[in-house]
Design a protein around this nucleic acid. Structure first.
Lengths: 116, 116
DNA sequence: TTGACATATTCCCATATGGGTATGTATTCT
DNA sequence: AGAATACATACCCATATGGGAATATGTCAA
């Protein structure tokens, strides 16, 4: 079984750095495909395909304006990602504590006693 | 060019839901491979391979204890992800505003005037 | 040393990928 | 209608994937 499809969920969709680039660009403001192509170092068809993926997972929404197709970010789709990472937030919030732990690990050459 | 390698960065590593499952499990506490295998519906080799990926991107760290290999989350590696998603936080923080926008878009059948 | 236990790695394979090139479709202009 | 513009889709292909099965490696116990 290969990796999950990029359209299966936002996690897979944003795995591609080009797509993150696109979202970063769109974070500033709504943009046409042409503008996105210009901002990236990529052929138009490739950009369209990335946009398709982002659209399929709901990360972007579109609006037609004449011949142009305007894309904008739909942050709601990215929210689950933010919330999932928040699960681990508590770890780095206690950095001092962690740093201390690390130091201990490094010095003590892992000589444990009771392998359950 | 195929999709970026799973070991290229955390974004790719966590694209796989099984790996997120593992991280969720490890978020509670340090665990041995055996425990992880038991918690997932997966063969041991597959789990080891997922752990390898997570380790390569720094998402987990290990410690040997006798025959067991104990894995624990390294939240620092996940932090970039959290921060990247934070970029879009402002969007859903102004939800009321967004909802209003949406309503307008839906009713107004996109009759724009000046296609630049 | 031999054996058992816990993990890791290798091999095989069907499948999804993303890039480029070519082509299709929608919309506007003349 | 015909041409030009702006995107989208189809097709081809080298490559990375994850799962399972088999095998290798590492650690401890007798």
């Amino acid at each position: 079984m290969p990796r999950a499809s990029t359209t299966s969920d936002v996690f897979n969709a944003i795995a591609e750095s080009r797509r993150r680039d696109i979202l970063n660009f769109l974070a500033l403001q709504e943009r046409s495909v042409g503008e996105i192509v210009a901002s990236l170092q990529l052929e138009q068809p490739s950009v369209s395909k990335h946009l398709r993926v982002l659209r399929d997972v709901g990360a972007v929404q579109t609006r037609r304006e004449g011949r142009q197709m305007l894309y904008r970010v739909n942050a709601e789709a990215i929210r689950p990602l933010h919330e999932w990472t928040s699960t681990f937030e508590r770890f780095w919030k206690h950095q001092l504590h962690r740093v201390k732990e690390r130091a201990e690990e490094k010095s003590a050459a892992a000589v444990k006693d009771e392998p359950k």
